[in-house]
Amino acid sequence: MNNFSIKIKDPVLSIRNLSVSYDKGKYAVDNVTADIKRNSVTAIMGPSGCGKSTLLRAINRMHELYENIETKGDIILNGNDISDMPTIKLRRMAGMVFQHPNPFPTMSIYDNVIAGYKLNGIRLKKKLRDEIVERSLTDVTLWDEVKDTLYKKGSFLSGGQQQRLCIARALAFNPEVILLDEPTSALDPVATSKIEDLLVKLKENYSILMVTHNMSQAARISDYSMFMYLGELVEYGKTKDMFTKPKDRRTEEYLTGKFG
């Protein structure tokens, strides 16, 4: 069926025959099956409109926000079928980071980190809150930069710092998997490289699935890569293999810049 045969033991995430359509009969994601490896960075590449963001959003069911959405197939996150899970639980297990940094403008840096608890009405003891904030900000290497301004508004930070704050907000829930939707496409090169270093570091403790437009970024930091085209998962394998000897002609053409 597909041009790949990749076996992943004890995957954090199993996607089985997933199809998503926004419009009856038109599939944004077409029968995708893939396992995502634990504690590694997996990149989803492909030209605009190939369904990579939809695939990512199907994992924490953010795609359900659109009307007339139809989803077929299963996604198993750490042994649990996500369609049975309440979205609050699912979205705690699968944290999401978006293209544009989006800290809550009315909240302080501190409150932004624990926003997930606060907004859901989960009360924590102050000591535990402080711990979560410090751990999450340390994880994203932001702690030293903001520890004296924790109670200032998050929107005063630079774009790159804001994006790291948003990652910290996702980490505060200690998620099973972090979903990133082109996290650096709105950032300058210095901020981008900081985020990339951060993701490589984070994979020690977290599993990362990232949509990227940027092939060299995928080559730099990902362990596994997927190439999607017109909703179909064309190729999936170790990044090193895919970039050196792609199996599918379309992957090769994309990687060599013939389209996309």
């Binding site: 924490n60 953010m62 926000l65 979205t87 609050i88 639980k89 699912l90 979205r91 705690r92 944290g95 999401m96 978006f98 293209q99 544009h100 989006n102 800290p103 809550f104 403008p105 926003a115 997930g116 907004l119 859901n120 948003c166 907000r169 996702a170 829930f173």
Partner: peptide
């Protein structure tokens, strides 16, 4: 911005 709304929804709110 729509992104602010998404940020909150992505936290399961």
């Amino acid at each position: 911005p729509q992104t602010i709304k998404e940020a909150a929804l992505a936290l399961g709110v």
